[in-house]
Design a protein around this nucleic acid. Structure first.
Lengths: 236, 236
DNA sequence: CGACGGCTTGAGGCGCTTCAAGTGCGGTGG
DNA sequence: CCACCGCACTTGAAGCGCCTCAAGCCGTCG
């Protein structure tokens, strides 16, 4: 029958496209503008703007979001260094892009994409990674509880854990804790996870109460036991 | 300009990339296997299978879904003719692909993608369209009510309506009704919209009660007034 | 006809949202 | 140094929307 449990799922590991196996050829070429820096909370483009340039994120974190007319917001992607964004199937951007940290971005005329097969290949790989992340996020938004959403969100911040290729806890008996920096307010997290700010806050408080996390700063959280956190994502 | 708006948008019509303006160069080449036909409810590949080939959907409808270990399912994409799928950032498929209707698909070795820039360009465009659909779907899953979700789902079945480039109702006073075929069971719809089967059923009944739709068959619904349905999607 | 599968309907409960205070912390100024 | 302010976050209480569980209905098929 159709729905065999294969015993995996793509759960966590959405490492950024930029890694050793895939060197940052990036989008440098004749049409590349000098990389630009923008402070935190800059809007790089708005949903509906004419989509003339595409962006590569060199440093920092960017979020893409969409708004409904009544003000409801959904953060649809959170992008790390190495990601390409601002490409659109239509004439205009389908999302607004805002920096969550100070960022450095390169931009490129979208026409020059056709000119360079190697660039296109790079872009395609970025898109595929983003697509898998979007698939996972659809599962989160459609099927996970608040606790599972926040756990999944926190695990997303821990590289090389929680996915197929989960490295597992270090074998040498050292503690399996890990400090992560969110770079997001509770409201931004809520809009990413499809929750309200109060629910996010309550879940984080509950995790603290249970000793799963320590709040080191508003946007910096220590996951006391990564493995235990991972158990709560709904993936295991 | 490369990416011409084909009259669909984010909102509703995510018609497949294959249309007159963009001829189906498709993925025909040396490495293409003879197009294959599969009956309804065939699994084309499972999540976790080695991702050796990519697929182009020539005819029919395919859904991609993911499962959580406890059986919760999320349908992450619904693909129409012209779509490319089965590409993966990793070594394995991140979703299961199942046909919702009888389908005809062509497959292609994934290695041959690198060999053909024109093919890669085609694939990139497909991915971009799918990405915008996924963004819209994230908004649906994260921020819309059950009624809005079902309305949005129904509007998705009506080409050229509900988006930016919405053609609007015909001016000649003809009625603005439209019959759509779902090709999906209530359970599949529920798993696509992040709801339960009962909620989907109740919403559809409520729409019928309000005279918004007529049930012509289980999986065929007449939208009595497309404009009125569109008002309920949350997009306006 | 009776069995089956998919859909509908009802009743009750739970989880998240809504609304409304309250808390804590960094920054500013007296 | 401390009072004050603003802002983001937290906490509480109440409500509602969707889920869960359980029948019941309807069309199809042997």
């Amino acid at each position: 029958m159709a729905y065999v449990d294969r015993g995996f799922n793509s759960g966590g590991g959405r490492a950024a496209p930029a890694n050793s196996e895939f060197p940052r050829v990036g989008i440098q070429n004749d049409c590349t503008l000098r990389p630009m820096r923008h402070p935190q909370h800059s809007v790089l483009f708005y949903e509906g703007d004419k989509a003339e340039r595409l962006y590569e994120l060199d440093e920092g974190v960017v979020m893409l979001f969409k708004l409904l007319p009544d003000g409801r917001r959904q953060v649809v992607e959170i992008l790390n260094a190495g990601s390409v964004f601002g490409l659109s199937a239509g004439e205009v951007y389908d999302c607004t892009a805002e920096s969550l940290t100070p960022v450095k971005v390169s931009t490129l005329d979208r026409n020059s994409l056709e000119a360079s097969p190697s660039l296109q290949q790079y872009v395609t790989r970025c898109l595929l990674t983003q697509m898998e992340t979007l698939h996972d996020h659809a599962v989160l938004l459609g099927r996970k509880s608040a606790m599972e959403r926040v756990s999944t969100f926190l695990m997303r911040m821990v590289p090389n854990r929680g996915g197929f290729a989960c490295a597992g806890p270090a074998e040498d008996g050292t503690d399996d804790s890990r400090s992560v920096t969110l770079h997001m307010t509770r409201q931004e997290i809520a809009d990413y996870l499809g929750l309200t700010i109060e629910t996010v806050s309550r879940v984080i408080s509950e995790m603290k109460r249970r000793g799963l996390i320590c709040i080191e700063r508003q946007d910096q959280i220590r996951i006391v036991n990564v493995c235990r956190m991972c158990q709560m994502t709904g993936i295991h």
